[in-house]
């Protein structure tokens, strides 16, 4: 077991974790933040995407111990003071989700993308989300939602 300190959605947590515990399970089962979902076991689907020190990462491909000292944001921490993040609102407005399972990861990937490229083309958006799979929407409305946020 190792002791780690992580700040998740602005709250600092100290915890004992097994060395092999994946960050996603620490978040889900250790901290009860079940908004981050698990969709595969090969780092392929992006469902578990969170922000680690402000950048998108797949939390299934990090050990909790590797995140010691890091600032993490999950889907639960995106809204501020009860106000949806514009990306969350845009996903709803443009019907960028159906079953919702890929949605937290997709939203986290999209917000990270816009941080790095505030005015992406459609092609930029599609490539910026290339690490995230969705089986319901065909991506059409997801791309629309991200473009809507980018274009203010």
């Amino acid at each position: 077991m190792k002791r780690i300190t992580v700040t998740v959605n602005g709250v600092t947590h100290e915890a004992e974790v097994e060395e092999r515990e994946l960050l996603v399970y620490f978040l889900r089962e250790g901290l009860g933040l079940t908004g981050t979902n698990v969709g595969c076991d090969t780092s392929s689907c992006g469902t578990c995407t969170i922000h680690l020190d402000g950048e998108s990462v797949k939390s299934c491909t990090l050990l909790a111990v590797q995140a010691d000292g890091a600032e993490i944001t999950t889907i639960e921490g995106l809204a501020t003071n009860g106000e949806l993040h514009p990306m969350q609102a845009a996903f709803q407005e443009h019907h960028g989700l159906q079953c919702g399972y890929c949605t937290p990861g997709m939203i986290m990937a999209a917000t990270s993308l816009l941080k790095e490229n505030p005015s992406p083309s459609e092609d930029d958006i599609r490539h910026g989300l290339e690490g995230n799979l969705c089986r319901c929407t065909g991506y059409h409305n997801i791309v629309k939602a991200v473009a809507a946020v980018a274009n203010g």
């Binding site: 908004g35 889907i75 639960e76 809204a79 989700l97 919702g100 939203i107």
Partner: peptide
């Protein structure tokens, strides 16, 4: 959607 986009 509100639950699905907030992780609830």
């Amino acid at each position: 959607d509100p639950e699905l986009i907030t992780g609830a």
